[in-house]
């Protein structure tokens, strides 16, 4: 590999690794803060960092992400400021959605990260429409839709897969197959391997090891390239593991037999460190410094955001329509 390319790869991978560490550090901070009563709710992302960041590396700024409620690493790597994420979780005055949604339901139009809803897979047919619009308007942008493997059981997944294939759209379906939909293991969700479902729609289906950031990057990059060239959609089954609970309200000891602990061989942080060390891009010293810096950033940002007050009460009843209704005006007068 020529020197220039090698140094570009090095800086790209160090940036990605830094995002992995920032995500993991932020994840731990929020879970701890929830336990302390400082945060209401959260859906941890632990275990899915490399999958998301590998995918994020494959995208351009103009591409659109139709993500779900576990995509913090994706957002951080994409350049969404950490304070935006924490402000959303706090539901404070600086949250772009003014605390209207429960934590983990992000929206960042500036980075083309579509507002997240709770009902799983409902964004998939919407992503199809967004991809249709890119094709129609010839923007050259690709849409990537992420979702858990539980989503593949829904009618929305079926509708979206079928329509994306019928219209040959620039769309990548990235299944973040973390093995669990709350308490239901993937083998009870579906008998078929997820990637094989693509065949029913005449679509390409691939499986990738989501714990391998580079493999994920290469596979998503190729799918995005094909989509951009008008060669249609791809379903990627990215295998990972949900190391934490579904949410801070969930107790996985009730249903889970297998666990992946932090620092173990299946932890994507460990996998990535080994990978980058083997390439000679990082050493223990750099790892230590990235982790220390990440902790400092997370602690500081969290405390800054925690100081921001709640939104003005009247904002809870605004923004329903471009122009409000007389009913709402009347109701707000009764409430406030």
């Amino acid at each position: 590999m020529p020197e220039v390319e090698k140094s570009e790869e090095k800086s790209r991978l160090i940036k990605a690794y830094t995002a992995v560490i920032l995500s993991r550090t932020l994840d731990r901070k929020i879970v701890t803060s929830q336990r302390q009563g400082r945060v209401g709710f959260y859906t941890p992302t632990m275990g899915q960092e490399t999958l998301q960041i590998g995918a994020s590396m494959a995208l351009e700024a103009k591409d659109l992400i139709y993500g779900y409620y576990r995509d913090v690493p994706f957002m951080l790597h994409r350049g969404v400021p950490m304070e935006n994420i924490i402000n959303q979780i706090m539901g404070n005055r600086d949250d772009s959605a003014l605390g209207r949604q429960m934590p983990s339901h992000y929206s960042d139009k500036k980075r083309n990260f579509m507002s997240v809803q709770s009902p799983v897979a409902a964004h998939l047919p919407v992503a199809v429409g967004a991809a249709y619009a890119q094709k129609y308007r010839k923007t050259g942008a690709v849409v990537i839709a992420t979702f858990g493997e539980g989503s593949t059981s829904t009618p929305d997944f079926h509708a979206a897969m079928n329509m994306a294939a019928v219209f040959n759209l620039p769309l990548v379906f990235l299944c973040e197959n973390n093995g669990w939909a709350i308490s239901l293991p993937v083998e009870k969700q579906t008998i078929a391997e997820i990637w094989t479902k693509a065949a029913a729609y005449g679509m390409r289906g691939l499986r990738v090891n989501g714990n391998d950031m580079l493999e994920t990057y290469e596979v998503v990059k190729e799918a995005v390239k094909r989509a951009r060239e008008g060669k249609g959609p791809t379903l990627i089954d990215a295998i990972s593991f949900r190391m934490g609970p579904h949410s801070t309200s969930d107790d996985p000891t009730k249903y889970r037999t297998e666990t992946v602990d932090e620092g173990s061989d299946r932890d994507p942080v460990v996998v990535t460190e080994k990978l980058l060390k083997a390439k000679g891009f990082i050493d223990d010293k750099l790892v230590e410094s990235i982790k220390t810096k990440a902790q400092k950033i997370v602690d500081e940002k969290f405390e800054e955001c925690a100081k921001i007050p709640a939104p003005d009460p009247k904002t809870a009843f605004e923004g329903v329509y471009a122009e409000t209704t007389w009913m709402l005006e009347e109701e707000v007068r009764d409430i406030l």
Binding site: V126, V128, G129, A130, Y132, A133, R137, A159, M163
Partner: peptide, 10 residues
């Protein structure tokens, strides 16, 4: 759903 996505993209 598709119509919503179109609307979101202009």
């Amino acid at each position: 759903g598709m119509a919503i996505g179109m609307a979101l993209s202009g």
